[in-house]
Design a protein around this nucleic acid. Sequence first.
DNA 1: GCCGTTTTCGGCCCGACTGTTTTCAGTCG
Length: 573
Amino acid sequence: MTNEELAAVFERVADLLEIKGENAYRVLAYRRVAETLRTLGQEVSLLRAQGRLQEIPGVGKAIAEKIEELLDTGELGFLKRLEAEVPPSLIELLQIPDVGPKRAALFWKQAGITTLEALEEAARAGRLRTLPGMGEKSESRILEGIEALRRRSHRLPLGMARPMALRWVEWLRQQPGVIRVELAGSLRRWRATVGDLDLVAASHQPEALMDAFVHHPDVYRVLAQGENKASIETKSGTRLQLWCQPPEKFGSLWQYATGSKEHNVRLRGLAQKQNLSLSEHGLSDETGHEQHFADEESLYQALGLPWIPPELREDRGEIEAALKGQLPELLRKEHLQSELHTHSTWSDGAATLEEMIAAAYARGLRVIAITDHSAGLGIANGLTPERLHQQRAEIEALRQRWGDKLLILQGAEVEIRADGQLDYPDEVLAELDLVIASLHVSLRQSRSEITRRVLNAICNPHVDIIGHPSGRLLPNREGADLDWDTVLAEALKHGTALEINANPARLDLDDVYARRAAEMGIPLALNTDAHTPGDLDLIEYGIGIARRGWVEPPQIINTWSPERLLGWLRGRG
DNA sequence: GCCGTTTTCGGCCCGACTGTTTTCAGTCG
């Protein structure tokens, strides 16, 4: 079983226990361990073999035993007993807004409802309103919620969510009385996908801003509206939340709304140790005296911490690192000197070589590699070795014209074929300045097959970078089922760089494996995979992932000087 | 169910908003 599959089992256990009415902290323990497994970056089965399961945070004796049972048998007796007690179809009810464990249990025990369909029928028939604590409004909210659930897609890729949120920010900034508006939530933490769009504002008249917000022309319905907080659903089915406080409280509000929830829980724990209580309003002591924070720095400082960059706020060790003064120095755009994965009209790009080169130069880069597709399987108008030679002549002419303003490399994005062979023979690869090997086809092969394909590329001395290693496409296509422990170990052994592909539809490596790779000392590449000049600006998404992965600038080959980069490439055959 | 330079038992974060209620429970982030 993979970590993700184990996590799903524990998530299911947590849902069922919660509906059953179990102790909330027991439920929380299962949820925490599910999240930890998802972001571990190494196979639990390996840790198990080394007898180190209980070294995983949140794994004690009971959960370690359950992990072992799952790894050995693929099943969990505890879950089976639970499913016999609580109908598992109730879990889908938890997806409905305003339906949590208490109400799911209520519908089940008092009305015999166990499925979404039965709940909808009961609501339409007006039977829900007769249940204790329910009324007409709750009933219609639930009906609306079920419809919204069907209408609404899953999490939005950051590449769609961010531009949409920025348009709202611009609009809100123009409202009267507004002093400041910023992104918060997972948007600000640069998570690859985003659920709701979270925004924060500073204003002396919060209620007026809330009123303007819920009357924006794109609003489909208002989910909640109070003095300091409102929540709406747009016509396209996206949910937005806006918090507002006067400017003297903006720091604690922004920190609170940025999250993550887990990070905030840890901060409140730190506050408690000082006999203080932390909320979005600030820090209050036992006498009820409240200290306000206009900026985040002073809030973190009051808790005895340096300011923690939003991308790290996931409770993945950032609090401990901050307490020790050991936060990483994170990547910034100005560290980057090269773009090593671009396409032109020679294959499936939209711009000529010169247009791409000029665009890279205009963005202050010192190196660009042109890496058009190889001919394999006829995809993307890939280049045969003959056309590759013709392209080389054109690149040579451009080198003459651009002189030492910009280093232009001829590379290729070489297909890793379904049989594991690379698309060009070694003698063709040897002629190139830089070689990226990527998976595009047969991504659903078995773990052993697809891992062998990637290893074949990693071990080839001409291959410098593995492009978008998992092949995932957000939000729907899962990446290949790679044996990551082996892939990472071999990349380290051969010094082959793994790419963080900055295209928001990919963001691959993801933050978890980028972090693991960096910890191991594997070189990383950070590229946009640009097919148009404007795509070069997508680099900010990749920077977000690198920062979320705690990757420090020297670990990214794109931060190296042209001389160092060339030296590295030449040393690789 | 986990965890421990205040604890191996007793803790485990906090407030806004809504709806159904006459003071609060449920949900959410």
